[in-house]
């Protein structure tokens, strides 16, 4: 009898616990779903061909966001062009060449710490080094360098993981044929790791495209009359555009539709990029034969 009631209590606890666990998963899903739905619902009305292809007019209350889209694309491509070679080479050193020891541990901790630096601190750093010290001024180059440094740890991490996933037997087989280490890496290891590295880089692109704080003082402008003509020009950028219109404009309410439209474009861009990475990754995982 006592045993039975204790069993009933245990099953009640069981139900309660799983209820909570399921609820939390549901809350997160609902939060994401609600957020996306709200943005799409409110933003879709603003999207038109003109919105995507024209520059803002009438002190930002009309027209489109083309310069901001373009600016974000420039900054992101610049960032990835800087971070990708640096990141891949660092990862190759760490996984293929470095012997375990204090030096490698220091580099690892350094990469981890870099990954944890707040984005606003990257902004300050970019301001101090690129804008002020190197006198690039606030421009695409400064912004792309800052964003590149920001996503460097992401790229290193993803590349390291991809390289570690290449079976050791591939390396042994190549080396045993009298092929040098570098050629083994270049011909066998890198091609096998490439899809994984690619995934990481695409996630890096998504991150760079969405960041605001690092470009506030290093690249972004509230409004530019012309499109940038060199890497030493200031640019508009989607995230900064959202921030400025939502907080600092004189027509905050009047530009609401434009704000929603810009948010939708930004979220769409970032999520599509992330989704591509996720899909590539799951395809590799399924296809992997070693």
């Amino acid at each position: 009898m006592a045993l039975q009631s204790s069993m009933r209590w245990r099953y009640l606890k069981e139900g309660l616990f799983f209820g909570l666990v399921r609820l939390s998963a549901f809350v997160i899903t609902a939060a994401l779903g609600g957020l996306l739905f709200y943005i799409i619902f409110n933003g879709l009305g603003a999207i038109s061909w003109d919105f995507l292809t024209l520059a803002p007019t009438d002190s930002m209350t009309k027209g489109g966001i083309m310069p901001a889209i373009l600016g974000t694309v420039y900054l992101t491509l610049g960032a990835i062009a800087i971070a990708l070679p640096l990141g891949i080479v660092s990862a190759i050193y760490l996984t293929e060449y470095a012997r375990q020891g204090p030096l490698v541990r220091v580099i690892r901790i350094g990469v981890n710490c870099l990954a944890g630096v707040p984005s606003i601190v990257f902004g300050l750093f970019g301001l101090g080094l690129f804008v002020v010290f190197l006198q690039f001024g606030s421009c695409i180059l400064s912004g792309a360098l800052t964003l590149g440094i920001l996503i460097l740890p992401t790229i290193i991490g993803a590349s390291e993981e991809a390289l570690k996933g290449v079976p050791q037997t591939f390396r042994e087989a190549s080396l045993a044929l009298g092929v040098s280490k570098w050629q083994t890496i270049y011909r066998i290891v890198l091609p096998s790791a490439l899809p994984g590295i690619l995934t990481g880089s695409i996630l890096g692109i998504g991150r760079a495209a969405g960041e605001t704080a690092p470009i506030m003082f290093t690249a972004a402008a509230f409004f530019t009359a012309k499109l940038p003509s060199s890497i030493f020009d200031e640019v508009m950028a989607l995230p900064f555009h959202v921030y400025v219109l939502a907080t600092a404009g004189t027509h905050i309410e009047a530009t609401r539709p434009i704000q929603f439209g810009t948010v939708l474009v930004l979220v769409g861009l970032v999520l599509v990029v992330d989704l591509i990475a996720i899909i590539i990754r799951s395809t590799i995982r399924k296809r992997k034969r070693w």
């Binding site: 042994e172 087989a173 080396l175 045993a176 009298g178």
Partner: peptide, 19 residues
């Protein structure tokens, strides 16, 4: 060692062809 391995070949426990 690269030169040595060209002249002394090796076959492993598990077949390890490249992809």
């Amino acid at each position: 060692p690269v030169e040595i391995r060209r002249r002394i070949g090796m076959v492993f426990q598990k077949p390890n062809p490249f992809p």
